[in-house]
């Protein structure tokens, strides 16, 4: 909380300070030979919600330092009105030439996007897609949630190949979120293709506690389960706890897959309790900044650049090494 206020004050000082001094306006004046040092980025982050978001913010801050560009970080505190206000502010800021948006909602952006276009800002969408005409922004960089689901399903099919029983349970994220919807859909498509049915599915709201509770309740009914697919790492960790208490060996008796590849998932894989985690990469900043620079120099970009994401499994020989090298 304190830090948010601090950022707010800092931001105000920055904005007023710069306006007051009437510093030279950067902007696309440098095009088509802009470099990172010419870039002044206004970044509208959603707010804090968990480990993924924290890593995402850190990525933008650290990469900005490394590349030598100026970053104005705006924390929308999960409040749409605040985020729109921040967008206005950046539109009117003569120094800012790139605006990066991690949108809280998919709709309602036409007005500010038009304003941005008029004032010549490059708009790049990060992590979250919006419903707006494609010529209003330069590009969208983010995960393909359905692809994550398909990757997980492929791994599940491989793990369960040749097994007598193939009961797969699914722990779903927040109902209605695009991540939950698309991951579930991608997972099902591919599972159907290899002939395995998802026998149970329930929301556990991305949380460890609920992941444990749901799995616990299912286990009372039947212990005939061979695979669990959790749409994020936290829910998988909860399922692992429930399986252990029921006397089953997670990772051995029941194959467990998750999405996100956070530090907790790596620890669980090293302990042999999680089989596979599909990466949902929060370290998007290098890709986003690169795209923004290209757009600033007048290049036309594809409207969607999928983020680079891998699949990690517990039987990788260099797992410890990979885990040590990761930031989140």
């Amino acid at each position: 909380m304190k830090s948010r206020i601090l950022y707010g004050v800092l931001l105000m000082v920055l904005v007023f300070g710069l306006v007051g001094c009437g510093k030279k306006s950067a902007g696309p004046a440098c095009a088509p030979n802009c470099e990172y040092k010419d870039m002044v980025v206004g970044f509208l982050q959603t707010g804090s919600e968990g480990g993924w978001r924290a890593a995402n913010s850190a990525s933008f801050r650290e990469t900005a330092d490394q590349l030598g560009l100026t970053l104005k970080f705006y924390d929308s505190q999960n409040d749409l009105a605040r985020q729109v206000a921040g967008f206005h502010q950046f539109n009117q800021d003569p120094d800012v030439n790139v605006i990066i948006l991690a949108a809280l909602e998919t709709t309602g952006w036409e007005e500010v996007l038009k304003e941005a276009q008029e004032s010549g800002k490059v708009v790049v969408l990060e992590d979250r897609r919006i419903d707006a005409s494609e010529d209003m922004y330069a590009t969208y960089i983010g995960s393909d949630f359905a692809e994550e689901g398909r990757k997980a399903a492929n791994e599940m099919c491989k793990l369960l190949e040749g097994m007598a029983g193939t009961n797969v349970w699914e722990l779903v994220g927040n109902v209605g979120s695009s991540a939950a919807k698309d991951r579930g859909q991608g997972f099902r498509e591919t599972m159907d293709a290899c002939g395995i049915q998802v026998t149970k599915s329930q929301t556990a709201n991305w949380s460890i506690t609920e992941g444990k509770e749901v799995t616990e309740a299912w286990l009372k009914e039947t212990q005939d389960v061979q695979g669990i697919f959790a749409q994020n790492d936290e829910m998988a960790l909860g399922a692992i706890e429930a399986l252990k208490e029921a006397g089953l060996k997670p990772g051995v008796d029941v194959k467990i897959l998750s999405v996100d590849a956070t530090a907790g998932a790596f620890k669980a894989m090293l302990a042999g309790e999680l089989n596979v985690t599909v990466e949902c990469n929060p370290l998007l900043a290098p890709q986003v900044y690169e795209a923004a620079l290209k757009a600033l120099n007048g290049e036309t970009l594809p409207k969607w650049i999928p983020s680079q994401e891998g699949v990690f499994s517990a039987d990788m020989p260099n797992l410890q090494e990979i885990a040590d090298g990761r930031k989140y």
């Binding site: 949380s207 460890i208 506690t209 936290e234 706890e241």
Partner: peptide, 14 residues
């Protein structure tokens, strides 16, 4: 109780 039940301290969701 809640944090030891899931063996995690989760400031965001607990």
């Amino acid at each position: 109780v809640a944090s030891s039940n899931i063996k995690t301290s989760d400031a965001f969701n607990l």
